[in-house]
């Protein structure tokens, strides 16, 4: 530091430093800046009093000053969630109690139901049925028009409520595709023959002679559930064998495997897990995907 020095041109004091003959003006801070700075300091004192601020240690561990207005972010979230539930409750209560067809005829309710259904589907159903409900091997595609247990609103609602082969639910949908090979009911050639007959039923290339032999096997073992023509029975959850949709694959190898080892896919009963409003929303949502029946 050297002695005080004033700049000739501006008349402003310099900082006293010299860098290769260059001096720096020591202009005062702008007033507005200084006052804003003071205001911020005052503000911070007020903030300490009003808002939760200082952490301190007590016998029980760390805590903090609560502030006089009791501001707490957790409360805000709780209140917001409560407000959402409150805002929805009217609609969701109606959805939970009104007949499904009536909900479908009310555009405003339907909008809520489809939105809630879509969200619930993503949370609960998508892991098996896929995010677009397109399914995969063993998990039905919910977009198509083929339903094992029925595709009306009531059918879908029942399936959702009680599940399929869900032991914990007394009213669950239950049937058995027996393991004809593993349990020794049919031998290998009989299974191969009946598979050829199933290929014939669904209009696929097949071995004619084997299919004729398979007819007898089909009539003795399969018609009870799948029907004389192999068109299935929704009461029993027996799939239609004549259409183009196969849950486990429709080629010879897959059919032989199905007949030999049986199939028994499981869907949980959601009645104990989700509330009625959500289940009905899911029903309407799944129904709206394109396969819903009247």
């Amino acid at each position: 530091m050297s002695e005080k020095h004033k700049d000739d041109v501006t008349g402003v004091e310099t900082t006293g430093h010299t860098w290769d003959g260059i001096r720096e003006l020591n202009n005062p801070l702008p007033k507005w800046w200084v006052y804003t700075f003071y205001a911020c300091i005052l503000w911070s004192f007020a903030y300490w009093v009003v808002m939760p601020t200082w952490p301190y240690l007590t016998g029980d561990g760390w805590t903090y000053t609560q502030g006089v207005i009791g501001y707490e972010q957790r409360n805000i979230v709780t209140n917001e969630l409560a407000a959402v539930a409150e805002g929805r409750s009217g609609a969701m209560e109606q959805i939970a109690t009104m007949p499904l067809e009536e909900i479908a005829n009310d555009p405003a309710l339907m909008e809520v139901a489809l939105g809630a259904g879509k969200a619930a589907f993503g949370d609960n159903c998508a892991p098996c049925h896929g995010s677009g409900a397109q399914g995969s091997k063993g998990f039905p595609n919910l977009n198509d028009d083929d339903w094992i247990w029925g595709g009306t609103l009531d059918d879908i609602h029942t399936t959702l409520l009680h599940g399929i082969r869900w032991d914990a639910d007394d009213e669950t949908r239950l049937n058995i595709m027996m393991a004809y090979g593993r349990d020794g009911i049919l031998n290998r050639s009989e299974i191969s023959d009946v598979a050829e007959y199933v290929l014939l039923l669904s209009g696929q290339p097949h071995d004619g002679e084997a299919a004729v032999r398979g007819t007898a096997v089909f009539e003795s073992q399969c018609v009870a559930c799948h029907g004389d023509a192999g068109t299935g029975n929704r009461e029993l959850g027996a799939p239609n064998l004549t259409d183009a949709i196969w849950l486990y694959g429709g080629d010879k190898e897959a059919i032989v495997e199905t007949v030999s080892n049986g199939r028994s896919g499981v869907m949980p009963a959601w009645g104990t897990r989700l509330d009625e409003g959500t289940i009905r929303s899911l029903t309407l949502f799944v129904h709206s995907l394109g396969g819903g029946e009247k």
Binding site: G132, Q134, N143, D145, A244
Partner: peptide, 18 residues
């Protein structure tokens, strides 16, 4: 056009887009 799924096979073998 629907993107998930892109198309759906129906029971009569026809293809449907949403």
């Amino acid at each position: 056009a629907d993107r998930n799924p892109l198309f759906v096979r129906l029971s009569d073998g026809s293809i449907r887009n949403g």
